[in-house]
Amino acid sequence: MTGKIFAAAIVIVALVFGAVVYYTQVYYYYEPVQANGSTDVMLLNTATGEREPILYENFEAIDANSSPIRYRACFTTPMSIPMLTETYEIYEGAEPRVAPGWFDCFDAEAIGGEIEADTAVVFVDERNREFGIDRVVAITDDGRGYVWHEVNDCGDKAYDGTPLGDECPER
């Protein structure tokens, strides 16, 4: 009888621990980001090398201080992709990161599908926002936009232990 009670206690403790870990990963660390209405969405101008705000509406964002890649944002813009591609730097190889299920506007699979289908273009917002992390902005043909943080080549090298090259900034 004592063995059954001990086994039940282990199962209960494991379930409670699992629930706490799930809650902390999916809900606890995330906080809504308050939009400032002017510089929440910026792109890197190819001519000047400076970040510039673009027109946007309906901005929603979340972030967490537990990781530099947890930032996600959604917005709409009246700006067209042809105009944006003439002015702003395109980001190659971006893959949207999965957002918590409760952040409904950001569906990484759908955004990735639009990028693959060439109905969305990814632009640079800021390179090395934090060492090894770039902020990127994807904009679709119909004016929906998404922002997330992408691990760049320097970040990949730093995290897997590969020696950093001269092209990487100082940490």
Rank of each mutant, 00 (worst) to 15 (best):
Y27F: 15
Y27A: 13
Y28L: 15
Y28P: 03
Y28N: 13
Y29L: 11
Y30E: 06
Y30T: 01
E31W: 00
V33L: 09
V33W: 08
V33H: 08
A35R: 01
A35K: 02
A35Y: 01
N36G: 04
G37M: 07
S38T: 10
T39G: 03
T39S: 15
D40T: 05
D40V: 05
V41H: 01
L43V: 09
L44H: 11
T46N: 00
T48R: 06
T48E: 10
G49P: 09
G49A: 05
E50T: 05
E50H: 08
E50G: 07
R51E: 15
P53I: 02
P53G: 00
P53L: 03
I54S: 10
I54F: 04
I54G: 07
L55I: 02
L55P: 02
Y56G: 06
N58T: 09
N58H: 12
N58E: 14
F59G: 04
E60C: 01
E60S: 12
E60T: 11
A61D: 10
A61E: 04
A61F: 08
I62Y: 07
I62M: 03
A64S: 15
A64D: 13
S66V: 12
S66I: 10
S66M: 11
S66D: 11
S66C: 07
S67D: 15
S67T: 15
P68M: 11
I69W: 12
I69C: 01
I69V: 15
I69R: 13
R70E: 15
Y71T: 09
Y71D: 00
Y71K: 08
R72W: 02
R72G: 04
A73Y: 11
A73N: 09
C74I: 09
F75H: 02
F75L: 03
T76C: 06
T76G: 03
T76S: 14
T76D: 12
T77W: 01
P78M: 10
M79W: 05
M79S: 14
M79E: 15
S80D: 12
S80W: 04
I81N: 09
I81Y: 04
I81V: 10
M83V: 15
M83E: 14
M83K: 13
L84Y: 00
T85P: 03
T85E: 13
T85Q: 12
E86N: 06
E86A: 06
T87Y: 00
Y88C: 04
Y88W: 01
Y88T: 08
Y88G: 04
E89P: 00
E89R: 00
I90H: 00
E92S: 15
E92L: 13
E92F: 13
